[in-house]
Design a protein around this nucleic acid. Sequence first.
DNA 1: TACGATTGCTTGCGTAATCAAGTTTATCTT
DNA 2: AAGATAAACTTGATTACGCAAGCAATCGTA
Lengths: 160, 160
Amino acid sequence: MSSQVLTAQPISEPGLQAWIRFLRAHAAITRELSARLEAQHGLTLSDYDVLIQLYHAEGRRMRRVDIARQVLLTASGITRLLEGLERAGLVAKERCQSDQRVTYAKLTDLGIEKCEGARASHLADVEELFAANFDPTERAALADLLGRLPLANTSEACSG
Amino acid sequence: MSSQVLTAQPISEPGLQAWIRFLRAHAAITRELSARLEAQHGLTLSDYDVLIQLYHAEGRRMRRVDIARQVLLTASGITRLLEGLERAGLVAKERCQSDQRVTYAKLTDLGIEKCEGARASHLADVEELFAANFDPTERAALADLLGRLPLANTSEACSG
DNA sequence: TACGATTGCTTGCGTAATCAAGTTTATCTT
DNA sequence: AAGATAAACTTGATTACGCAAGCAATCGTA
């Protein structure tokens, strides 16, 4: 046990170690979270993410580009993801009259239901798998630290 | 700006916020890291990860199951990933005489080279995109916090 | 007002990773 | 010494996503 990893030297470069843990934790937690979300509501983590974005948007609708920026998926990724949600009847297309290029994605009533239904259990899962490992002070500290990480080209991708 | 996200209430649940940032940061950073690794060395982030695991293993070889556990991929995922590395001549199969079920994956000389060649630039990239956002104390704190997160069924998946 | 650049979105194609099911070898049970 | 169970690995089918390229609509600018 106690294998040294990702560097030859005696290691202990804490930046690197943090990164490795970051990677591993992400893989493990999202795997579990996805599985539960899938089992209980038939949704992908990304599906859920998009749904929630829409849920909190004004008019419960957004331009596809903006969704992409928020969720950190590609434009094409969003097209396909929304295809699925449309097929499931959770989201509907809506034309924009002022700019014919844009197609809004709008949450349907069924979508709103779905969203509200999934939320509680998902939040509980996040709490259990992620947040429960920290006390309030640590949560704040962690949020602060993670908030400094770059979000790529997205100027304002996070959201609070 | 300042959209509230992932919860209806006034929000400010710092655990959730930390989680969202965690997700977003992961997407952004690994995207960029992958792109660079691909461009400069023709490797996936997972490829690199596996290569490094092998590099630090005794005898520069590991059982495929163990790789899977370390890297948090599925067994089948590992089979296919190694296929690629074998085709590239970076890794070779090696039979185990004491247990005919296992096939070691062993780093070839070329693999070792590749590994060493990729390491410097990748570490620099991790430093730039991830670690550089924190001072030494913060790095330690972050590593500590992330270290508490669950690694799924893996008893000892992380590695230091 | 005309035409080049930009923006929003979609499509084709390639790839990485999953799950479920199958094969072979080991181990356990009686 | 079987026969059942389990472990290590592979394979087939499917999925989710990214990139590059394309099409339309809009904007800027001359």
